[in-house]
Computed example of a mutant assay.
Amino acid sequence: MDPVDSAAVTVAAGGRTGTRLLPPGDFGVVLATLRARQGWSVREFSRRANVSEGQICNLESGVRNPTPAVAAACDAAFGTGGALVELAEAGRRGARTESLVDAGPVVAGYERVLRELKDIGRSTGPRFVTASMKSVTRTLTDAAPLAVGEQRADIWLLASKFAEYAGWMAQEAGNPAEALRWTNLAVRWGAQGGDETVAAYALVRKAFIAQHRGDTHAAIGCADQAAGHPAANPVIRAHAARRAAQGHAHRGDAIACREALERFASHVAEALGDRTPHWGPRTENGNPRLIEASCMLSLRRFELAADLFDAERRRRPAVPADSNSQARFAVRHATALAGVGRLDDACQIVEATLPVIKRVDSATVRAELGRFVEQARTRRASPGQLALIDASAALAIG
């Protein structure tokens, strides 16, 4: 039995317990949430429930209410013990006759879906969320023309948020072209929702993509454009300064890197309490010490980088909830330690982190692992360390 089937059996094990089994929302939102949790695409769910893909999209967008037979088929596919049938019946009793979409439940429900998908993406990587991200954006872009006024704008803005995260997941999957495509869609849909700030943040994303391509000139250029964009708010300027700092560090320009780090700290302080639209990771969750340590690593100031990583690990020994960030900074720490000859300590960190790296399957984390391998191979290693370095090299290649 695969994990999806196992999860469905677990839900159904309690028998017919009613709608309390289900996440909050109307039938369409609940359907999308359950599908996202299982990691099913619309096509996969269509196959399991024997319901057409078009029907599923109409249900999830709120354009159609389910018939009793369709509700029963969905209930059987998820193993919700009659809960979906009850929810569909409750929806029919209070059904509206208008053909327009009421955006309130759609937006609130899919915002919850997006939060859940981000939680899954942070802990397991892109492969379990990509299909759901694509199908939800299709649902939202189909629903938006059926709404009016501010409600239509709200749906377009939510579609933009899904597209922005789909771009990040594409980058994590090692597909920069697809990442750029989704980022451009996020800009277009954000504009239709009345938000121009996503255009500024898109430049930050493009800076990150350029950095991982090894094009530091383009990375710094995009970061500077983001910082100077008319719609940039303090959060976006902070992200831009961080990307600029890392770009300058890769080029070996310590002075420009330090200036960018100072701008980052200033914008983070300015962003506290900022209520303008939010894109990208929350700046208050960014650890300035780890970011500085990462820049020192790129500048090949291994001793300073190792000291900063060591100090932060002593100060915050608990691992963060974000497995991707945990793995990325752990590998950078190990690279710094290898750079100062502490290969035993470095290998201990990598050995403990390899299971996380395998689970999240992130192209950006694998790139960091490749940097560790490159540095570790400059040191004299024991047979056990050599085996770990070789295993890391194989995983870095993907």
Rank of each mutant, 00 (worst) to 15 (best):
Ile56Arg: 12
Ser61Trp: 00
Cys347Phe: 00
Val63Lys: 11
Val373Pro: 10
Gly82Pro: 04
Ala367Lys: 00
Arg313Thr: 15
Leu22Ser: 06
Arg263Lys: 09
Gly341Tyr: 04
Val107Gly: 08
Val101Cys: 04
Ile255Glu: 08
Ser325His: 07
Ala330Cys: 02
Asp274Val: 12
Phe302Leu: 07
Ile220Gln: 04
Thr183Pro: 02
Leu261Cys: 11
Ile255Arg: 00
Glu178Asn: 06
Glu172Pro: 02
Arg43Glu: 12
Ile397Met: 01
Leu34Glu: 15
Arg263Ile: 06
Arg47Met: 07
Phe27Ser: 07
Ala108Leu: 11
Arg48Asp: 03
Gly39Gln: 07
Ala71Pro: 03
Leu140Asp: 07
Val63Pro: 02
Arg96Gly: 12
Ala223Asp: 02
Ala32Cys: 12
Val9Gly: 03
Trp279Cys: 10
Trp279Lys: 08
Glu196Ala: 15
His278Arg: 10
His278Pro: 01
Leu369Pro: 01
Thr67Ile: 13
Ser323Val: 10
Arg275Gly: 14
Phe309Tyr: 15
Thr364Val: 15
Gly221Leu: 02
Ala143Tyr: 08
Pro317Leu: 06
Arg188Phe: 03
Ala318Met: 09
Leu21Pro: 00
Leu386Thr: 12
Arg20Met: 07
Pro281Asp: 01
Phe128Val: 01
Gln192Ile: 00
Arg47Gln: 10
Asp253Cys: 01
Ala305Ser: 15
Ala131Thr: 10
Thr283Gly: 03
Ala71Tyr: 00
Ser52Thr: 15
Ser266Trp: 03
Val70Gln: 09
Val70Lys: 05
Phe45Gln: 09
Glu259Met: 07
Gly194Asp: 01
Arg213Gly: 06
Ala269Asn: 10
Gly54Asn: 11
Tyr201Gln: 11
Asp75Trp: 01
Gly121Tyr: 12
Ala232Cys: 07
